[in-house]
Amino acid sequence: MDNIFELELTNQRKVGWLALGFTLILTAVMVGGIAALLDYGATLTYAVLLSLGASFLYGFVWLMKIFAIEPSLITIATDCITVLNKTSGEENRLLFNKIASYQYSVYRGGKQLRLKLRDSTVVNLSDKSQRFATMVGEFETALALHQQPLTTSLLSSEKAGDDIMGIPSYAESPHTTIREKTFFEKRISTVLMAILSVVMVLLTCSVLLSSRPVKGSLFLAYSGYISYATTWWIARKQRWG
Rank of each mutant, 00 (worst) to 15 (best):
I4P: 00
Q12S: 11
V15D: 07
V15N: 01
V15M: 12
T23N: 13
L24N: 04
T27I: 10
T27L: 14
M30S: 13
M30V: 14
V31F: 10
A35L: 14
A35E: 09
A35Y: 09
A42N: 10
T43I: 13
Y46L: 12
Y46W: 12
Y46E: 08
A47I: 10
V48K: 10
L50N: 04
L50K: 09
S51Q: 06
S51C: 14
S51F: 15
L52W: 10
Y58S: 06
F60H: 08
E70Q: 09
S72W: 01
A77I: 01
A77G: 09
I81D: 00
I81E: 00
T82K: 11
V83K: 11
K86H: 01
S88I: 06
S88C: 02
G89Q: 03
G89C: 05
L94T: 08
L95K: 08
F96H: 01
I99H: 07
S101T: 11
S105N: 13
G109H: 04
G109W: 09
Q112V: 11
Q112S: 12
L113S: 07
R118I: 07
V122A: 04
L125D: 04
S126A: 14
S129E: 08
M135L: 08
E140Q: 15
E140M: 08
A142E: 02
L143I: 11
A144Y: 12
H146T: 03
P149I: 03
P149Y: 04
T151H: 05
T152D: 12
L154M: 12
L155I: 03
S157C: 02
A160V: 03
D163N: 13
M165Y: 14
I167Q: 11
I167V: 15
P168L: 03
P168F: 10
E172K: 15
T177M: 04
T177F: 03
I178C: 02
I178K: 15
K181M: 14
K181Q: 14
F183W: 14
E185N: 10
R187V: 07
I188H: 03
T190G: 08
V191K: 03
V191A: 09
A194R: 04
L196P: 00
M200N: 01
T204P: 00
T204W: 04
T204D: 02
T204R: 05
V207N: 04
S210L: 08
R212G: 00
G216T: 00
L218G: 07
F219R: 04
Y222F: 15
Y222C: 07
G224V: 01
I226F: 15
T231R: 03
W233C: 02
W233K: 03
I234N: 10
R236C: 02
Q238L: 11
G241R: 11
